[in-house]
Design a protein around this nucleic acid. Structure first.
Lengths: 210, 210, 210, 210
DNA sequence: TATGAATGAGGGTTCATTCAT
DNA sequence: AATGAATGAACCCTCATTCAT
């Protein structure tokens, strides 16, 4: 018996914790798919539990209630979304950085179709805390865009008279708009490459010097 | 006696019809406020009836069901929204026409805060017919924007190399974005005059010649 | 002007009464068809009024409520049914009288498919008064059958040891059973000529002397 | 310790399952009494739950909806009814077999007063599947009666010229008629011993040789 | 820790009945 | 006498949440 008593005593809780964490993750994954397909109201706790392969009651050990579960799912996805957008080293010019962000944002949302639910601010539930969580992530991202704008201005690449904060808002808005279209799958709001290209050019033409 | 017999005979039904129509309007008004505040799922038939000062059952004399009521509310508001945006004669230049549209759209939505619910494509209900109704209005509006763009290009006011259709899509998107903010009342997504001004400049800088 | 004042004064009410009676009949006719197709619970006051070509409210001028209307419809049809069954002069023998009654009952019900709803004692409503009305008609009919049985016994045509009252009950039961089948249209309970012939023979074999 | 590990591990669920099964039975019992007294339309889910001493929602864990509950109740009762009627060994003669069936049917229905609701084909609900289920039981019973008739004919006990299939139909009809009277409790349609005796004699006289 | 049976408030909808016109 | 708009109680059913096991 190579293991000491202590290790044995600790091992089981460790296993337990692992198993528990895995179940938590399974629930979150099921919640992502349900909320993404059906929205908050359409998704039922029962269906989430079923897809996670656990009982109804177990959800309430990890999450206060359905809304809390939604908040957590949303918080995680915004975190990942913002992470995915940060400029790469290869984005040397400020314009390339903006373009890269928009394109990576669109790509990310094509792969994670839940995010737009937040971005479009789905209603019908207490959004206060959700908005809070969202704001915590959204504002830093806008600040990042603003810093790129400032870099572009300093480099003489962007117009010197931009209202940096407001323009950052507009750019972030466009990013979420065209990212969200992957989710809507509504032919009236296409996310074809042509449209994305046009949005990129629109954005750059608006900020670049004549 | 200036009234003919016919008019007298029809008078009573006319009174009734008036009263009935007024109640229909009260229901629509209540529905607008409920759907606007609470979304489709959050709004209850009972609350709508309560705010309209009528009984639950009366709603079903005018509207097939809750969803039909929603469709009618939406259809009316999109109709009015599109109407409100059409360029005025005073908008002589193409740029002035675009700016006027965006500003009028924002103003309209400040006064009619339900519209953005459609624009953001609220989920969780049978949207097929709603999307259809929406598309019927949205595409013509995009075409209108496209025609303004073409006028600006011909006048040498806008860049000659614009992808007219796609740029019209982007502009309409921005219009609905900043119009929608009046509805959200989310400080993270402000609709302050500064932001609107910035959005207008952003749009014009993107399409005007250097 | 050949008409006296009195006649004029009376004529209009007379016309009115006629028109009123005609509407009452239209309502009854509509009620027969609705109750027959849909049963008591399935039939709605609105549909009956629609088929009669009158307003909802008018029904309540002629009938206390939906149940009262049902009672009247039922009472009329039982009256007609019992009338239709009375033996014809041509039914010389007692056996021929019984056979004629059963066959005429079946024929009547094929033409008036509501009756069986009563005969089967549809539930779910206050049947007390309805049963009363039914009993008022049903018992006389049983008595009529009993008198035919007695005539057959006296004539040596039927068994002398029949319990006349009880056998009359059984025969009336069979009459309503096979009459009712026209209404059910359930292939499991056919009302084919063969079945009716068999029922007739069964009945006659049961009462005739060896 | 006579119990194996497996048994111990299963014991707790077993308790639960027992309790659950008992509640299911209480619901079925309550449904029987409600449907029997009030019919399908008259019985409400709320009243059934109240009589069963459970919540409204629990019914929907066991049964898809009200109609499904009705189907199950009906299926069980028909199954038991057909079982109760099968001839006993003591019924040596064919006539005794027929008499026994009718009397046992009546006795069964006195104890299970819902059955006749099916037999009378209550309307106003989707009867397709119910009729199917019923037919599945009813026709075999008719076949059983037909085989008894054939046995009686072969034994010289019954008339040789009977139309076996049709006569079986008539006999089954009489069985359900007089069985159903226990349910109606309508003095106009008595199920007194005298009436039952008369029905038995009627049936036997109709099939026995002169 | 994990289950899932059980709860019950609340949803949308129907429809017999009334009453102002 | 006749209308039909209006009522509102009652229906069936869903589902987030709890708790005995």
């Amino acid at each position: 018996m190579p293991e000491s008593n202590e290790e044995i005593l600790e091992e089981r809780p460790a296993r337990r914790r692992e198993a528990s964490e895995e179940r938590r993750q399974r629930i979150l994954e099921a919640a992502r798919s349900c909320f993404g397909e059906l929205g908050f109201a359409g998704a039922t706790v029962g269906e989430i539990a079923r897809r996670a392969g656990v009982s109804n009651g177990l959800l309430y050990q990890f999450f206060r209630n359905k809304e809390h579960l939604f908040e957590v799912v949303l918080g995680e996805i915004i975190r990942d979304w913002v992470r995915a957008m940060v400029p790469r080293e290869a984005d040397e010019s400020a314009g390339a950085a903006l373009e890269g962000m928009l394109r990576r944002s669109v790509d990310f949302c094509r792969a994670h179709p839940l995010l737009p639910a937040l971005l479009r601010g789905e209603r019908g539930l207490q959004l206060s805390r959700i908005q809070g969580a969202s704001r915590d992530r959204v504002q830093p991202h806008r600040d990042l865009v603003a810093s790129i704008l400032r870099r572009g201005i300093e480099a003489g690449e962007f117009r010197a008279d931009l209202d940096v904060a407001s323009v950052a808002d507009v750019i972030c808005q466009l990013q979420s708009d065209y990212s969200g279209r992957a989710y809507r799958r509504d032919p009236a709001f296409p996310d074809s490459p042509e449209i994305i290209d046009a949005a990129v050019r629109f954005m750059l033409d608006a900020v670049r010097v004549g």
